[in-house]
Design a protein around this nucleic acid. Structure first.
Lengths: 357, 357
DNA sequence: ATATCTTTCGGTAACGTTACCGATATAATT
DNA sequence: AATTATATCGGTAACGTTACCGAAAGATAT
């Protein structure tokens, strides 16, 4: 249990200085390519750096230059509609705990998922705060594209989580591959269809028209799978407005009356629990239900056996990795992957207790 | 984008010394409760430490005390039978890359899964190497219990990954909850059974008798699920010896001839690919196949559609978290959870490309 | 009383890096 | 030729902690 001094010695700035016959100050200058070094000296030092494969000691570096980095977090509020964003926020808090001791401070800007203006407000407000990097959920495509242009002009690095937009200035995208998530939904549906006349219902439930793009991708994945796998069961697709439950109920009642062979319902967003509530209250236990996201209401119905499968994308990890990617990019100055797809997890009644959000 | 000095100031050892009217050396002594401090002084300093909620600066601490820590890794070789252990080892390498810059060095001791003696040899050999902590796979229960006693006598901390044994001296256990994994297998089986006379086969395939305990737990979970969910399909359980494929084939041929209604096969370990090969070659595509572990051969058959579901436990992360837990425990001296169950992941043809091993 | 030991504590170099301050040499300007 | 500007570089304090060395004071033994 006794410790020895390092044997496999890592050379430092001092060794470089000795070999190049200059002071450590000069070495420091070329490492951070500051001005004031003759070209010849510079090249000589750079050569030695490569030779000994110099790796800066991050401990010492961060200890000395004890600077603050300000990270902005721009994500939706936990709303009455869905507490989906609780999970990414928890991941962010976890990352925060891990790195704030290294002088990173956080400023959070929340917006309402039902309100584009509130998104714009927060996205702009953040500019006054002198932030060094931004983690954002580009929930409103058009608006996000606008603000991103401003961030680029101000030279503030940013990244996206949960959903992506076409902006190749972003450090990275961290979130699901929605098209393939549709595949998985369709595959699971395939297993629960037992005969030819069983019918499938694909639906999305929403109040406002956010993220239409996302839903379209999932639906496309779903129907492409059905087509390429030659599944001939009838497939219908409807959109249901969420709001008053009674209205919701009448809408479904009449639909299922006209279509009594619906055997499986696939909901393309996290509002599955609404359907689950309906199925439970109307006692339609022969319909299997598949949807998205590990949120409390969904898990409740999953455990009761009303929801059969939840497809999830590690929301907490999205937040965590978002912050860590910012940290790696702009503090440690390491390379980060341009897109980081999350796993497409299948959660059931039996494995949900072991699902690490 | 400019950086300011820290505002929310963290007090250090110097501030404590000033307030207690002693030198920083004395403060250091009580922090590491070394000897040579009068009781009164000690208490005074401890009070101040609590008051200002002193958090040691890990950067400075690790920078100064630049000690080597030696970690031993005791896991099975990647064998010709299964390359399952490639994944945990990759996780270990990943963790290694991350922390070896902080003076952690690794010594790897491999053993053969088919040979208890080779396990004991490696487990003992490691004692000569003056290691500070051990990550081990206790693949042989009896033998592991023995060596663990030695480790405890030598006061070398250790932890288990992949499978657990009754040794409460371990830092932590990182691995699956096998009983619940059996549940998940059974649940998936339930979905693929379409009528009453479909029959289920549960089997394990092995050369030697390693980890019988593990298999038993999975089987128990499986059958308990079947019982409690009142699934009345007939269930049979057999053990198949792996080795010569022809013998394997005749064994299965005769079994399936006697039992033509087998609709679903559940394999309790990673050798599913053997059954998959058989099903493919004999063209029995109407039997669904469920098994364990994300290894190359299994994934191949998963993509071909021969295997329907793979249940996995993030083997790579097991290795990664194993090393990181050692690091946290004995270098950072932080608390680690006593058991860390891995998620029970369901991998299919459609989501396997996004499965982070 | 002197010598020796023990307890308690302070001073301080060092870890590898950063960045400021100023020194020296060379070039440009008057 | 004297002055000023510029390019190039070295010296060094500091970041917060660790741990060694020895000082001072008190306790014990001779």
């Amino acid at each position: 249990m006794d410790k020895q001094k390092k044997s496999n010695k890592q050379y430092g700035i001092k060794e470089i200085a000795k070999r190049a016959n200059v002071s450590i100050a000069t070495v420091d200058r070329v490492i951070h390519n500051r001005t004031g070094v003759a070209q010849k000296t510079k090249e000589k030092i750079q050569k030695i750096i490569k030779e000994i494969d110099y790796q800066p000691n991050l401990l010492a570096s961060r200890l000395k230059s004890n600077k603050e980095f300000v990270l902005a977090v721009l994500i939706p509020k936990v709303s009455e509609n869905t507490n989906f964003w609780e999970a990414p926020y928890n991941g962010i808090l976890k990352a925060k705990e891990e790195i704030e001791k290294y002088g990173v401070i956080f400023k959070t800007f929340l917006f309402e998922l039902s309100n584009k203006d509130s998104f714009m407000e927060s996205a702009i407000a953040l500019l006054d705060e002198n932030v060094d990097g931004i983690l954002m959920a580009p929930s409103f495509v058009k608006e996000a594209e606008q603000v991103v242009k401003i961030y680029e002009k101000e030279k503030i690095p940013y990244l996206f989580i949960d959903s992506n937009i076409a902006a190749n200035g972003s450090i990275t995208y961290i979130g699901p591959n929605l098209y393939h998530s549709g595949f998985v939904g369709a595959q699971l549906t395939k297993y629960v269809l037992h005969n030819e006349k069983d019918e499938i219902l694909v639906t999305n439930i929403s109040k406002t028209d956010t993220n239409i793009d996302n839903l379209k991708q999932i639906e496309k994945g779903f129907s492409d799978y059905i087509t390429t796998n030659k599944i001939h069961n009838r497939l219908q697709s409807i959109a249901i407005k969420d709001g008053d439950y009674n209205q919701f109920k009448t809408e479904l009642d009449s639909f299922l009356e006209i279509n009594p062979n619906i055997k499986s319902i696939f909901v393309t967003n996290s509002r599955v629990f609404s359907i689950a509530r309906y199925l439970k209250e109307t006692n339609r236990r022969n319909i299997t239900l598949i949807g998205f996201d590990f949120i409390a209401e969904n898990v409740k119905y999953l455990k009761e056996g009303v929801i059969d499968f939840l497809i999830c994308h590690k929301p907490e990890e999205q937040g965590y990795r978002g912050i860590m990617s910012l940290y790696h990019h702009l503090i440690l100055m390491q390379k980060v992957e341009k897109t980081q797809f999350m796993p497409i997890d299948i959660v059931t009644k039996e494995n949900c207790d072991f699902y690490p959000n």
